[in-house]
């Protein structure tokens, strides 16, 4: 027999593994190995595809498989979905070969969101490394659209080289037009590079942050996030006001496959966005 509570529980719940179909509108190559898919989102019962900044979709390429990819478009424009994708594996390679009008499968949006409402009235520091700028772009769009609700907007961004910078045109626009402080660094410069060289944590010395008034959102490689969080705390930012987005292997995206466990957390449903105190004790441990 089965517990009656479980037996009657939401027999109408969505079938968690069934993707909806969406159409590729455009493929934009951001760098040599990173591209953005612009997608006409699926329509469920005539409703538009609503998501929050920080959430992700499971993106399916026909016959090849799924990959968990954060949404990198503007949440206020749900009719045009964007996923910025690093081409590294079989699924991300298959997705990179798509053309206008091709169909993909989408499951989502899944996971937790960046704390935009909590940031209202505060200075906001966004620190991104590499492809980590993609899940933060929906935040930047939102902050700039509601510019007067926030204090300073600081965007710190690090990439491997000048050619690896994502969203180059937008980075320019953000810094010029919208009263945001954008500081960029690269690991290795080239002959044309006149900007900063070094890791993202090195950029904090260029900002006089009023840390008690600041909220930080961090996304990048785990080692970058670990040192960035340490640097922010060292500069007096409370751990409760530092947020970060984690990555793990995911097969289901809904807490059923077990792959994305990080200690007791399921990155897919308890994250990907966490406040630092939720996971700080796990970040220092190897191979958790």
């Amino acid at each position: 027999m089965i517990d009656t509570n479980i037996a009657v529980k939401r027999t109408e719940a969505p079938i968690s593994m069934l993707p909806a179909l969406a159409t590729v509108r455009r493929v934009i190559w951001e760098t040599d190995d990173t591209y953005t898919l612009l997608i006409d989102p699926p329509r469920a019962n005539g409703r538009s595809f609503a998501f929050s900044a920080g959430q992700f979709n499971m993106v399916y390429a026909f016959g090849t498989g799924e990959s968990a990819i954060s949404i990198s478009s503007d949440p206020s424009r749900p009719n045009m979905l964007a996923h910025t994708i690093h081409r590294v594996g079989t699924v991300t390679s298959a997705l990179s070969r798509l053309r206008r009008g091709d169909t993909i499968g989408l499951r989502g949006p899944f996971g937790t969101a960046w704390p935009i409402e909590e940031a209202v009235g505060k200075d906001v520091c966004i620190a991104a490394g590499g492809i980590g700028l993609a899940p933060l772009r929906p935040v930047i769009y939102t902050l700039l659209r509601r510019r007067e609700e926030f204090g300073r907007i600081m965007i710190l961004y690090g990439a491997r080289s000048p050619l690896d910078l994502l969203y180059r045109v937008e980075l320019e626009e953000w810094s010029k037009a919208a009263n945001a402080e954008v500081i960029i660094t690269v690991d290795r410069g080239d002959s044309s590079w006149k900007g900063h060289i070094g890791v993202v944590t090195g950029l904090f010395s260029y900002l006089k942050m009023d840390t008690p008034a600041t909220l930080a959102m961090v996304c990048g490689p785990e080692v970058m996030m670990k040192y960035t969080c340490e640097e922010l705390e060292r500069r007096g930012l409370a751990a409760e006001r530092i947020y970060l987005s984690m990555e793990r292997n995911m097969k289901c995206g809904v807490g059923l496959c077990g792959h994305c466990q990080f200690g007791p957390k399921f990155i897919c449903k308890d994250g990907p966005v966490f406040s630092l105190p939720q996971i700080k004790h796990l970040l220092d441990r190897k191979e958790i």
Partner: peptide, 21 residues
């Protein structure tokens, strides 16, 4: 039963087998 039914998403195949079990 808890693992497959406690979250926002359920394992429909499992629960369907369990309900008739």
């Amino acid at each position: 039963d808890r693992v497959f039914s406690s979250g926002d998403y359920l394992d429909d195949g499992y629960l369907s087998a369990r309900r008739r079990n």
